[in-house]
Computed example of a mutant assay.
Amino acid sequence: MVEASKDIDAKVVHNLISCRELAQRSSCDFALSVWSLWQDCPLISLLNAKDFTGLLHQICSNSDGVSLEYFFAISWSIWYNRNQIVHNERGLSPLQVWEMAKRVVDDFQEANLLHLSSTQPSNSGWAAPPPGFFKINVDGASSLDGQGVSGVGVIIRDANGGVLAALCKALPMHYSAEWTELFAMEQGVLLAQEMGVQQAIFESDASAVVQAISQDLCGGESGHLIQGIQNAKLRFLSCSFRHVKRDSNRAAHELAQYAKCKNVSCVWKGVSPPFLDSLFHSGIG
């Protein structure tokens, strides 16, 4: 019984770290390709691991809470992808598996924050812009398993909370989380210009996207999108980009989810999307 347990433990390490049968058209190791995308990955510990229990003890002893979250999220994502292939489903690329793991960690951390905030008074939620300004909240939605289409959501509100316009748009295919968030920001800029907004505050809960736009990071595959947003912002009298927590971006989040789940595209001008009424009445939209 003990020997069987050790064999299972060793096989778990093989599937989560070696996993060479999933390489698919590539001589590099699939699982290690995923782990290498984690900047703080304890790669030496992974390569020297003999069994999962020993590896887990070492990770717990030498890592902080965030590292543990990433370790378990990456392990689960690799295992999930392996099962998809075993059952004749389409597998994901190493980058897509890594993005799945990141989204799992983000959702876990967000759930913890919501749990903590529910036990104490909070000023969280959407905040109105100054008089004369419009606030444009944007969000993107992509499935964890790479299936279906991605969606984006945009909502523009004035200093009184009135809805100037809103948009939900299903994208033609599934995109990574970063690309989807960039498309959402692009749609927000375009809708604001169409509605004649002159003084704009754009908000997103995707910190990497806000940072890339604020710092004009136009290199890489998505550089042309960032450059396009940079060029478009020159048409506003005032324009800024801010990162907010997800609970301050709920309306845009719901719009993006609506587009993704129903595969639809809609625009509302001068009215609020009916399915957001309960959110607005709660005062946290």
Results as ranks from 00 to 15, higher is better:
Cys218Ser: 06
Leu191Tyr: 01
Gly228Cys: 03
Gln198Trp: 11
His281Ala: 14
Tyr258Asn: 14
Tyr258Thr: 09
Gly228Lys: 01
Lys260Pro: 04
Gly220Gln: 09
Ser282Arg: 15
Ala232Thr: 03
Phe241Lys: 02
Gln257Phe: 00
Cys261His: 08
Ser238Tyr: 13
Ser214Glu: 09
Ser240Asp: 13
Arg250Gln: 15
Ser282Met: 12
Ala192His: 05
Asn263His: 02
Ser248Asn: 11
Gly220Ala: 08
Val267Phe: 00
Val197Tyr: 12
Met195Arg: 06
Glu203Met: 04
Glu186Thr: 15
Phe241Ser: 09
Leu276Arg: 08
Ala252Glu: 06
Glu186Lys: 13
Lys269Thr: 13
Arg235Ala: 12
Pro273Glu: 09
Ala232Ser: 12
Val271Ser: 11
Ser248Ile: 03
Gln198Ser: 14
Cys239Ser: 14
Phe275Asp: 06
Gly223Asp: 06
Phe275Tyr: 10
His224Pro: 00
Ala232Asp: 10
Ser278Leu: 12
Ala212Asp: 02
Leu276Tyr: 07
Ser282Lys: 15
Val189Tyr: 01
Val209Glu: 00
Met195Ser: 06
Leu190Gly: 03
Glu221Gln: 10
Ser214Lys: 11
Ala192Phe: 05
Val210Pro: 11
Leu225Arg: 07
Val267Lys: 04
Phe275Lys: 04
Trp268Ala: 07
Ile213Val: 14
Cys218Asn: 08
Gln199Asn: 13
Ser240Thr: 15
Val267Glu: 03
Met185Glu: 03
Tyr258Ala: 10
Glu254Tyr: 11
Lys260Ser: 10
Ala192Ser: 14
Arg235Tyr: 09
Ser248His: 08
Glu186Asn: 13
Gln199Met: 08
Gly220Asn: 09
Arg250Cys: 13
Ala232Cys: 04
Pro273Tyr: 02
Arg235Ser: 13
Gln193Leu: 15
Gly228Leu: 05
Ser248Leu: 04
Tyr258Phe: 14
Ala208His: 10
Cys218Tyr: 04
Leu190Cys: 11
Val244Phe: 01
Arg250Asp: 12
Val271Lys: 05
Lys245Pro: 01
Leu190Lys: 14
Ile229Gly: 07
Leu190Trp: 03
Asp216Trp: 07
Leu234Val: 10
Asn249Arg: 07
Val209Cys: 05
Gln198Arg: 15
Gly270Glu: 14
Ser272Met: 15
Phe236Val: 06
Arg235Ile: 05
Ile201Lys: 05
Arg250Ile: 15
Gln199Val: 01
Gln198Asp: 09
Ala200Ile: 05
Ala212Glu: 02
Leu234Cys: 06
His243Phe: 08
Ser214Val: 02
Gln199Ile: 02
Val189Ser: 05
Cys218Met: 15
Asp247Phe: 04
Phe275Thr: 01
Pro274Ala: 07
